[in-house]
Design a protein around this nucleic acid. Structure first.
Lengths: 283, 283
DNA sequence: TTTTCATGGATCATATTCTAACCAGTTTGG
DNA sequence: CCAAACTGGTTAGAATATGATCCATGAAAA
């Protein structure tokens, strides 16, 4: 193999299934990706992709290649973790992945103060709806709501995240006989124990909370979203519903990195400070 | 990791322990190796080598890196084999590794005719005293004298390689009461069953054979070296001494390659043609 | 249908990387 | 002891890879 780096381009290409998309992932241009893939095919002596109208699709040989590069990729990721863990400098990058709602309701303040306290740490925050995998180094630290934290990850459960029923104070004052039920479209919510009918299926919890604040009905929210909100009250007749847990996680290999440690500690403290509210234990 | 190809340079450097030696292995210049290593250290954020007067030596971090790159390297080698095996073309390279003595005594003719018969096959022959590993793709096909062929290798035992006692006809005519013993310096040869004293410890079998041809004494040679040589005769009072075996080997992954098949078949035939002589069964 | 959008190929100026050459300092061998 | 053959560093100029741009094509969207 003339140039091992071509494997990196190849993997991006195989995943993105289009030269331009791969180029975007690799932060380069489609001209470069096209050239490098061609060079790799030349070097290996066989075609890796079939150029079809609907996109580039792996040949059988390309598929075998993809399987084999998996091991190479895992190896490179381990190297990245080793290097990152080895890096003892306080100055440098750390990447954090947080659920968007959790960022808004719990972490926006603490992360702001973290960045002010450590200006030499280049903290980049990614808010996503989906899991980022610390072992693949898609993120260095992740804050995640889950019931079973992934293997190879180390960290702490920082709080329980129970659900509760909320509505606006105004709605509660003139509550109808049959409650108006505001819920997530997906995943499908458990049907209410109350006398209620669905009137709004929202795409995200942010929307659910917004609709509730406007007095449109009652609905389930994690306590970290409902508790302490002046425009929301918890319905007293229903208990807390145990749900998932909140974990702050990283990878063993990079736990030694001082930036990671600082961030983890800061997150632990932030959750500790707000734990009562998050777990719905007072208002 | 910004550039996976730097791992290739790093491994060469770690093995060669000098920038210039690594550059020679990589067929590039020491300036390039120096710059790439520096770039890699920059990227990883830690030093990989300690620059000392007696050469570059791995740091502890560099050593961990080396351990991890081993897996990456194995993966890349598997990819190389896959590509080579996939290549169905009759035109292209094949690399053969043979023991030098075996080349001279058995294979020089057949390999010459092979290259004439298949001019589009770029056969490169490496004659070495040491084992080349087919799984590391240091060679595509190896002809080796061994008693236990390595794992993962496929191929055939093409002949036994017994030893016998030889001297020149002239020496035999005026043989002294105490024989003059010509032997390898290393590995230490078994002491002769005869009445003999060591007079020459040679560095290679070629030298042993040459000294014997000049009538300097008697000595052990593999039959493929002694048998059929007009200037050597086998001492009749000693039987053949069973020793190692000759194997023609390649790797499963590249057995499909037509150039490899052609070469293997040609080698099988060459050994088959000369098997009687190699095994000392006539003269 | 027409319009819009995204795709991949091709081209060329630009940036980057590599090579060749020379340097000074060390070790090795005669 | 000196000479030769190493070592790695540095530089200018050559070779190479890259990125911006334009283009034709084909697939969705209006």
């Amino acid at each position: 193999m003339k140039n091992w780096d071509d494997l990196r381009i190849f993997r991006a290409m195989a995943k993105a299934r289009s030269i331009r998309a791969a180029a975007a992932d690799l932060r380069t241009t489609h001209a470069t990706v096209s050239r490098r893939i061609r060079a790799l095919e030349e070097d290996l002596g066989s075609a890796l992709f079939e150029r079809r109208n609907e996109g580039h699709v792996l040949t059988a040989f390309g598929q075998s290649m993809m399987d084999l590069t998996e091991g190479v990729s895992v190896g490179v990721e381990a190297i990245d973790r080793l290097a990152f863990g080895q890096d003892g400098s306080l100055a440098g990058p750390v990447r954090l992945s947080v659920l968007e709602d959790l960022y808004h309701q719990v972490l926006s303040g603490p992360l702001d103060s973290f960045m002010r306290a450590h200006p030499m740490i280049e903290l980049s925050i990614e808010t996503t709806p989906n899991l980022r995998d610390v072992s693949r180094r898609e993120a260095d630290v992740i804050v995640r709501i889950t019931s079973n934290p992934p293997e190879q990850a180390v960290g702490r459960k920082v709080a329980d995240s129970p659900l509760a029923l909320y509505s606006s104070p105004h709605y509660l004052n003139q509550r109808p006989a049959i409650d108006r039920w505001i819920a997530l479209d997906y995943p499908p919510t458990i049907p209410p124990l109350l006398n209620a009918r669905p009137v709004f299926l929202a795409g995200s919890l942010t929307v659910v909370a917004d609709v509730l604040r406007r007095g449109q009905g009652i609905g389930l929210l994690p306590c970290f979203m409902g508790q302490g909100d002046p425009n929301l009250v918890r319905l007293p007749e229903v208990d807390l519903i145990p749900d998932k847990e909140i974990w702050t996680l990283t990878h063993v290999d990079i736990l030694q990195n001082p930036r990671v440690r600082l961030l983890m500690d800061h997150l632990y403290r932030a959750f500790s400070d707000q734990r009562h509210r998050i777990e719905g234990r007072f208002e």
